[in-house]
Design a protein around this nucleic acid. Structure first.
Length: 405
RNA sequence: GGGGGGAUGCCCGAGUGGCUAAAGGGGGCAGACUGUAAAUCUGUUGGCGAUGCCUACAUUGGUUCGAAUCCAAUUCCCCCCA
């Protein structure tokens, strides 16, 4: 078994901050000595039950705790989702139905099993307790929180200063999340740096309720594929952890060079000194950035699939993008329905292949010279084409389909 | 309770009676260059088998030959005073 210090160092990797570090060490030590499990808390948003490698950063951190014998508690914030974490332009989300919640929970389970050890994972919904509080209970809880404390939160502070509105219920969001920690008696709460205020609020509230304070463990926000905004499904700049190896590989190859180091650190298990080595080689030019990126993509695909899958994905990538050959497999597009006199109108063909959301968009693609069949450019949007079974339709760099008569 | 300001395409934002499918920017898409990186340049960015037609500037109705633009009502948002 690893010593407490060794455990601590593994856990510390990639973190922005641990509040307080000594507290975490003490908890790890205490747990080891008494043979008890720490409760590691993570909150997830139930409205978007799709896990990408940005969530993976935090989940993999949780996994490390599990490997040291601790218990992970995932809180699906079905109650708090109806408030919406205040972001400035909060949209109050609709309450989910029981069926939706159950369905999302299942979806989560299938995904997080790829990272977490299910035997050491508990999933709870915070509506279980938050939804049962009476108004009197709520008053009792909020009486332990001062207005000044709440208004310390950055976005509240700036909004107040700029005269932008803050709704009462938004002020409740951090309190709800903090109260979750009280109910669960969590030892550690893991989250992105955007969770800092909420997680520290948990510490305060636990103290108020006479409990031991949880440790706040903050991970950086993983930048998305665009390298600028945080990774999120709604921005489309994500890599889902259940995506196909070749899609994962391809998407990872498209990230800006500058964010490679943070991806290495946060999304892979490549040792830190090796990452340093790579950085050095990149800056002195002895390593081509593309090679580093291939390594990165391979590492990540290996984590979520396997080393073989990663190798295959790389081979496929090189075949398509370096040697400009067609992918080994691609979706088929049946043309039987859109055939007229043995010919197919190119615009309809693109729509049938889901390469364009509308005919107008398909026309544009054609006019812009992004469409080929078997490598031959189609540039006339009026074109009616005699297609043959097995021909390869391509739109842009990424979209391929095999024609099926 | 009183007074004032506002709502435009994916986003920001111009437009105050016809020349407006709506300037400009961002983002997206496509092309060139390349390493499916960045930067840069070019084109494109409501729908429709399409030299035209349809739908669009919060909603509904009105004025007008003609409305994103004027009027009325409605909804939502913001600010100031109390």
């Amino acid at each position: 078994m690893l010593t407490v210090d060794e455990q601590f160092n593994i856990i510390k990797r990639g973190t922005v901050e641990i509040v307080p570090e000594e507290g975490l060490k003490a908890k790890l030590k205490d747990a080891q000595e008494k043979g008890k499990k720490l409760k590691i808390k993570l909150g997830l948003d139930p409205t978007a039950p799709y896990i990408h490698i940005g969530h993976g950063v935090v989940l993999r951190k949780m996994r490390q705790f599990q490997d040291f014998g601790h218990e992970v508690i995932i809180i699906i914030g079905d109650f708090t989702a109806s408030i919406g974490d205040p972001s400035g332009k909060t949209i109050t989300r609709p309450q989910l139905t029981a069926e939706e919640i159950a369905e999302n929970a299942k979806t989560y389970y299938d995904q997080y099993c790829l990272i977490l050890d299910p035997s050491k994972t508990r999933v709870v919904f915070n509506s279980e307790w938050l939804g049962k509080l009476s108004f009197a209970d709520v008053i009792r809880i909020v009486s332990k929180v001062t207005v000044a404390r709440i208004l310390e939160r950055d976005d509240f502070e700036t909004r107040l200063a700029e005269g932008r509105p803050i709704s009462m219920h938004e002020l409740m969001y951090p309190v709800c999340q903090a109260y979750d920690s009280v109910v669960l008696e969590s030892d550690v709460e893991v989250g992105g740096t955007d969770q800092k205020f909420n997680i520290l609020m948990g510490r305060d509230l636990q103290t108020q309720f006479g409990l031991e304070e949880q440790i706040g463990l903050f991970m950086p926000i993983l930048p998305g594929l665009d390298g600028v905004q945080k990774m999120s499904k709604s921005l489309g700049n994500y890599v889902g952890i259940t995506e196909e190896p070749k899609d994962m590989f391809g998407k990872l190859m498209s990230i800006p060079d500058e964010i490679m180091p943070s991806y290495f650190e946060l999304c892979t298990d490549v040792p830190l000194d090796e990452i340093e080595e790579i950085k050095k080689k990149l800056s002195d030019g002895s390593m081509h950035p593309m090679e580093a990126k291939k390594r990165l993509a391979r590492e990540i695909v290996t984590i979520y699939h396997s080393a073989d899958a990663a190798k295959e994905a790389q081979a496929e990538f090189e075949r398509v993008f370096s040697q400009h050959e067609v992918p080994a497999d691609m979706p088929e597009v049946g043309v039987a329905d859109i055939m007229e006199d043995g010919k197919v109108w190119i615009v309809k063909l693109l729509a049938a292949a889901n390469m364009a959301p509308s005919n107008s968009e398909a026309r544009r693609l054609v006019m812009q010279g992004g469409v080929t069949i078997d490598g031959e450019k189609i540039s006339d949007p009026k074109a009616n084409i005699e297609v043959k079974d097995g021909q390869v339709l391509r739109a842009g760099k990424l979209k391929f389909a095999r024609i099926k008569l």
